[in-house]
Every structure is written in C-alpha cells, then in structure tokens.
Design a protein around this nucleic acid. Structure first.
Lengths: 184, 184
DNA sequence: GTGCACATGTAATGTGTTACATGATTAT
DNA sequence: ATAATCATGTAACACATTACATGTGCAC
C-alpha cells in the first residue's frame, strides 16, 4: 500500500483548502456531503498524526507553550501539497472506474485550486472513456441475462448499478462541456 | 459491532443460493458485478471460518477422510438462513440511506427466494421515502450553494452525488411498480 | 515431467470503529 | 458553579490487504 488511504487524501484536500484543526475536520465530516467518512476522533486524530509524521502537514497555530488540550491547526507543507497534486494527477485506470468511483469523485472535487483546468478536462476525458467501455459491457451482460431468465431482485439490483454508471457518464460529459467553455 | 460485516452477508447470501466452496466464491467476486469485494484468499477463507465457527454455515461435501487440500463446499445451516433473513428484514433507517446505499442494494438483490414479495415491496417503500427526503434536502442545499458561488469542481461533484440518488430513487419507484404487478 | 489451473491457508501490517477518558472554554 | 460545547486523545478489537506458502489434479 504505497498509497495513502482515501481518508488521508480527504484530509489533505480539506486542509489544502484552508488550515484546520482535527475538530474542524470532524465537523465537516459530520455535517456535509462527506458524511460517509466517520467523524469519530479515533479515525481522524491518528490519521492527522500519520500525515504529520510523514511531513505532509504541520501545525501552524501560535500555540504559546503549554499545548495540552488546545486547538491545533494544521496546514499543508510543500510536500503535502505535492502529494495531493500527485494524487490528483494520477493516471486513471480501468480498475479505478470499476472499483473506486467514490475516490475518483473525491479527486475531481479537489481539482479546482490545485491543478490547472486542462488537467481536470483530461481527467474527465479519461473517465468518460473508461466508464463508457465498462458501463457498455455491463449493459450488454445485463440485456443477455434478462433475456434468459425472469426478472428478479438480483437482476434489478444489477440494473440499478448500471443505471448509476450511466448517470455518472452523462454527468461527466455535461461537466466536461461546462468546464471547457470557460477554459481561458 | 453486533452486525456481521457486509462481506459476511454477501457470503451468506451467495451460499444461500447454492452450496459453494471458498474458491467458487472468489471466482464470483472476481468475475461478476460483485467485483468490489476482494477475491483475495486472505479475506474470504477467514470470513468463512468465522461464519462456520458461529454455526451459520457448515461443510456439506462427502469429503472422504484425508481432507488436505480438497474442495470444501459450504451450505447454510438453519441458523445461517435465519441470520440472512433477519438481515434482509431489518428496518431501514435514515442512516442506511445516507451511509450504506451499497449494503441496501445487496440486501435487495438477495431478497428473492428468501423473503416474501410483500417484504420486498415494503423495503422499496421505505427506501423511496427515506431517500426521497434525503435527496430533496441535498438538492435544496446544492441549489443554494450554486446560487451563492461560482461553479467549481467541488460543487459539480456534489451535484453528481445528488444525481446518483435521484437515479436510484427513480429506479426504486419503477422496480416497485414492476414487482407489485406480479404480486400474486 | 513440467506447467497451469484448482484450492486452501497463514503472517504481517495498517487502519477504521467503538468506547472510554479528559482537559479547556463559554454561557447561564 | 455547573452544564454544554469545544477539543484531543488512547485502548481493544475486528477486519481487509498483501505477500507468502503449499498441496492437488490434469493436460501436453
């Protein structure tokens, strides 16, 4: 596992937007669309310590002397910013599309402000291509299956998965158009 | 964690469809729409041992005597079937819809053959109600945000999440209609 | 008789979850 | 002063992943 976990990347991305404390991050996870990350201290504080020990984030508050239970704000270091950008710029693989759609969406969400617009467009192009192939294969497989056997909940669930991919595909195409319009 | 993991439930559901070996299950995870479960032996064999030790599955092959590296098939026990059905029948909560959509889809997929059609319909009704409320709230929040600030990738990703929910909502409504038609 | 698919397992590691614990600050 | 909220942390546990290890049976 040379790569950091997606929780760590979510933390890097958020801290990159503005320096924050562990408590701030927990609040974000508890109250926004990033709800599916746990807001429990047992996940976030250890993750912050790991990022700190790897030199990707550093404390920035003018924390007098006695630091016992005071607010500790973190900001990205140069290395942290580099690590974030490297993650955002990673080549997108078929496996990413098949297994890690959520992570791809997180990457996309953090692109503004961290990578040039052209990188975002290229990401969407790759995304559209890979997801198009995969969704097409699944759709064909579903048509075959549903012709051969009566409709049951297993098949319906399979269809739901495919419809989800098709929605994401349509969204990506529209997003690409919208972003390309204001490229300059 | 009173509940078994979702991997364990996936295994119970598959074994409930027909007795299978660990290797069969790995193949299923490696080649079907259930790809996002790891097909690594390090996850599946220990999970099978756990289910066996809890008495939810049992070996069924006429395994002569020397059992060294032979194929070992498992089937659901009575307790296993009971555990599977209890999971399928669990009341659906708001949190399930917000955080565990994948698990809900898995539950739905396994309903045929394990619970009566009326239970499946009730599940969809609850799903539609809870997801409708949640997706509506998110949509309103998105409209507010996108009116207040310029469109950026974070907002676009947020919108994608909402569109996914709306797709699932529409699918659930159609599935409910289709299943209710052939209730008798 | 060598290679490949079948088939099952263990050990090391990382990390997320839950539950518990505690100090600091602010409002009443 | 006392309750609520802010804020950080630890310990026990379960689990997934990766890499490694090993045996079986068949085809060529």
């Amino acid at each position: 596992m040379a790569n950091a976990s997606t929780l760590e990347m979510a933390l890097l991305g958020l801290i990159g937007q503005k320096p924050q404390s562990g408590y701030d991050l927990r609040k974000t996870f508890a109250t926004t669309a990033m709800r599916h990350y746990s807001d429990s201290p047992g996940s976030i504080y250890p993750a912050l310590r790991r990022l700190e020990s790897r030199g990707l984030i550093a404390q920035v508050n003018a924390n007098g002397g006695a630091d016992s239970r005071k607010r500790q704000e973190f900001a990205l270091t140069g290395a942290g910013k580099g690590s974030l950008v490297a993650w955002l710029e990673r080549e997108l693989t078929r496996d990413d599309v098949m297994l890690r759609l959520g992570e791809l969406l997180l990457r996309f969400a953090f692109m503004d402000g961290n990578v040039p617009r052209s990188t975002t467009i290229r990401f969407l192009d790759q995304f559209i291509r890979e997801l198009g192939v995969y969704a097409g294969e699944r759709r064909a497989q579903f048509e075959q299956s549903s012709a051969r056997m009566p409709l049951h909940t297993g098949l319906l669930a399979f269809e739901m998965g495919i419809k989800g991919m098709e929605t994401q595909l349509a969204w990506a195409q529209e997003a690409r158009t919208r972003l390309a319009e204001k490229l300059p």
